[in-house]
Design a protein around this nucleic acid. Structure first.
Lengths: 146, 146
DNA sequence: CTACTCCTTAAAGCGCGCTCCAAGTCAAGA
DNA sequence: TCTTGACTTGGAGCGCGCTTTAAGGAGTAG
């Protein structure tokens, strides 16, 4: 029965989620039951906000809800679960590192393919081919294979 | 009616996909109808393999199948579609760049939280807290907040 | 009192990208 | 001849993470 705190709508805006998602997260145990105003409406605390931002960050990097559920339940058990919680974070950090690697490979591949398309367009005389090059007096003879 | 080329199974292994996925991609038009042996079995060419590797790379970086379908159909129309295809790749490259940014932020956050857990474990005298430190004679007084 | 807005709930629905199933064909080997 | 195994097809099923729906309550303005 708390009358201070954020409404579900304002918390949703603050965290970049929808109100639906906030209720959903509560339902599946990602956040503990939120305090309520006298009329039954949810009132989110600052602590809720910090936790929600963390959830948002983890979800944005593809940590499954299953894992977050486990992490959340360990968190509720207190500091004795530190090792287990750290393991979850370390595992996810490793996954993130390899995702970054994959993305960087793809980024490089795209750079290569995009430059090929530019060359094709130049050859065909299509508009837009030289878009990023302001002056075209001399080409530095870029060597790109395949 | 070709008798050379990779079987669906060996192509699946080469591309890190399942045979199910290869048939699915063909079904939804991500790859054009594959050549067949006399018995009706698929036979994949080197060109198929290159294209499949590209698809794999794009899917691994979350480019939706919808976008790949569009890209694939443009590709079948020839070089005149260069501009449109380049646009798709450039858009995806921008998405990748921002994904990398998100992942790096999360990685940093995790580094921070993991170090906090180590400190908790040290204080509680839990095993594994100093795992990455081979010798613990003197601590360099690490300053980490929150 | 009415209308409106904001919230509540349980439950159903959905889009994506596979993934699996059932039934059948074909070819090689014991 | 029978079995085994790799393939074929169309279609159904599934896990994830929301997202929407339906029905209703509480508070405020006119």
């Amino acid at each position: 029965m708390r009358n201070t705190g954020y409404t579900i709508r304002s918390m949703a805006e603050r965290c970049g989620m929808t109100t639906h998602t906030l209720r959903y997260y509560e339902r599946v145990g990602l956040i503990q039951p939120v305090g309520r105003a006298r009329n039954g409406h949810r009132r989110y605390s600052e602590a809720d906000e910090a936790w929600l931002h963390f959830l948002h960050c983890m979800r944005a990097t593809n940590l499954p809800i299953r894992d977050l559920q486990r992490y959340a339940s360990l968190r509720e058990l207190g500091e004795a679960t530190s090792l287990d919680r750290r393991k979850i974070l370390e595992d996810h950090q490793a996954v993130i590192a390899s995702q970054i690697h994959e993305l960087e490979k793809a980024h490089a591949l795209l750079t290569h393919k995009i430059s090929n398309y530019r060359k094709i367009e130049e050859r065909l005389g299509l508009a837009g081919a030289a878009e990023p090059a302001e002056q075209m007096e001399e080409q530095p003879a870029v060597a790109v294979s395949a």
